[in-house]
C-alpha cells in the first residue's frame, strides 16, 4: 500500500467516484472505513450507498477518486432505470454503447 498521507474528511469524503477504465461516474464517497489499529491509521475501504469499495481498487485520488470497477455493482440503479424506462423511449442510444 502506498504511504500517501490523506485527510479523510477533506480528500475522500463526498468526492466523486469515477471508473478508471471509461470515465463513467459511479457515485459519491459517502463514508470512509479506517483501520485504527494500524499506526498511522490506514484507509481500508470507501463506502458508497450500500456498497463497500476495498482500498486495493482505488487507482488515483485527485479532485475525484478513480477506482477500478471490478466485482462491484455500482451501476445497479442506473441500469435498472435504463432497462425499465429510458430504453423504451426511441432514440435513447445504441445498445452497443
Amino acid at each position: 500500500m502506498s504511504g500517501r498521507v490523506l485527510h479523510a474528511q477533506l480528500h475522500l469524503r463526498d468526492r466523486q467516484l469515477i471508473d478508471q477504465r471509461n470515465g463513467r461516474l459511479l457515485g459519491k464517497v459517502d463514508d470512509v472505513e479506517l483501520d485504527l489499529e494500524a499506526d498511522p491509521p490506514v484507509v481500508t475501504a470507501l463506502i458508497t450507498g450500500e456498497q463497500r469499495i476495498p482500498a486495493r481498487l482505488i487507482a488515483e485520488i485527485d479532485t475525484a477518486v478513480k477506482i477500478s470497477n471490478e466485482g462491484l455493482d455500482l451501476d445497479h440503479w442506473d441500469d435498472w432505470f435504463e432497462r425499465h424506462i429510458i430504453d423504451k423511449i426511441p432514440g435513447a442510444g445504441d445498445k452497443a454503447d
Partner: peptide, 15 residues
C-alpha cells in the same frame, strides 16, 4: 454522483 450529462447517450445517464 450519478452519471449525468449530454456528453453520453441518454441510456448511459438514465437517472
Amino acid at each position: 454522483g450519478w452519471q449525468w450529462g449530454k456528453f453520453v447517450r441518454p441510456r448511459q445517464a438514465s437517472r
